Amino acid sequence: MKIFTNVKDVEQCATLQSDLQTVSEWCYANKMRLNVEKCCIISFTRKKNKFTYSYTIEDHSLGRRNIVKDLGVLIDEQLTFRPHYEYYIVKRCHRILGFIIRSTKNFKKPRSILNLFLSIARSILEYCSPVWSPYYNVHIDNIEKVQKKILKFISRKYNLGRTLKNYEQRLSKFGLTSLKTRRVRYDLLCLHKILHSFLDAPGLLSSLSINTRHRTRFPRTFTLDVYKNNTSYYNPIVRMCRTYNDLACSGKDSVVDIDIFNSKFSSYKKAVTERLKRDITH
């Protein structure tokens, strides 16, 4: 359970404390004792001087944290998600690669090693990516290095280094795409699910702004505001809409049409996949 509110003064803090007390009393009445040690507080703000308040449950003070994990994703107090992809998934997957490399010395087929990577490492690198997908190249490259490392290892192990000299050739050889491209694909698929209410997220759906003006040759499907900082500009919903706008406009002359409104999810998914592959090869 998460309880949250916008806090600007002590009165709002007192309201939040009252809500905590209500929840605590309900749990006690229904014989569901809360584990106070697992409860914590985090304040999401970019201000240097944070407004702090001591919250309690059953007269026990709650600890304050700078980073919390929510459904497997690390979130910091500035909502940057950097701890998740900088320290959590990348380091974790490098350890997994070490395990794969040590454990596959006697493997005869390169595809067997690759399947291990895809099943136990790449899945970690892509879990919930529409939420935390990075936008700085340094972070994008750090994530990509994990896949580069395993493909380089496979190429050397099976004497493919001379024919597969770079990352792009290795991707083509094994029928893969970059992790960055896959995250773009997941963004576009997530946007379709939100628009058609396959995801129960009315708040996200209401934030989509459809462009009803068509004054240009290639009108943008979604209307986007002018954002003054990276946090707003790279907001997940804004990023998804901007990605779709760019892909749809760039493909007006393409045989692969992407229609997020009238296409079924399976058809839309196939069209997005084909368009991304086409853009990579061209």
Rank of each mutant, 00 (worst) to 15 (best):
I3M: 12
T5Y: 12
E11G: 13
T15N: 14
L16E: 07
L16P: 00
S18M: 12
W26G: 03
W26A: 13
M32S: 14
L34N: 01
V36M: 05
K38F: 02
C39P: 02
C40H: 09
S43E: 09
R46A: 09
K47I: 07
K47H: 10
K48L: 13
N49F: 10
F51K: 10
F51I: 09
F51N: 08
Y53F: 15
I57L: 04
I57S: 00
D59Y: 10
D59P: 05
L62K: 01
G63R: 14
R65P: 01
I67C: 04
V68Y: 07
D70Q: 06
L71G: 04
G72P: 01
V73S: 05
L79M: 15
L79H: 05
T80G: 03
T80Y: 03
R82T: 15
P83L: 05
Y85I: 02
Y88N: 15
R92A: 07
H94C: 11
I96R: 03
F99E: 10
T104A: 03
T104M: 03
K108S: 14
K109L: 12
R111D: 14
R111A: 11
R111I: 13
L114D: 03
S119R: 14
S123D: 07
I124A: 09
L125K: 00
E126P: 01
P134Q: 03
Y136K: 15
Y136H: 14
Y136N: 13
N137S: 14
V138Y: 13
I140K: 11
I143W: 02
K149C: 15
I150A: 02
K152C: 13
I154L: 04
S155H: 02
K157H: 06
Y158W: 07
N159T: 10
G161R: 07
T163C: 12
K165G: 09
K165R: 15
N166A: 05
R170M: 15
L171S: 06
K173F: 15
G175C: 08
S178I: 04
S178H: 06
R185W: 06
D187T: 04
L189I: 05
C190A: 11
L191R: 00
H192N: 04
K193E: 00
I194G: 00
I194V: 08
H196I: 02
D200P: 02
P202I: 06
L204E: 04
L204F: 07
T212W: 08
R213S: 13
R217H: 11
T221A: 10
F222Y: 03
L224S: 04
V226H: 13
T231F: 13
S232I: 09
Y234M: 07
Y234C: 08
N235E: 13
I237L: 15
V238M: 08
M240N: 02
M240C: 04
C241K: 02
C241R: 01
Y244T: 02
N245L: 06
K252F: 15
D253T: 11
V255P: 09
V256S: 08
I258P: 00
I258L: 12
D259K: 02
N262I: 06
F265N: 02
S267K: 10
K270M: 05
R275A: 02
L276M: 09
D279G: 05
D279K: 10
I280K: 14
I280R: 15
T281A: 12
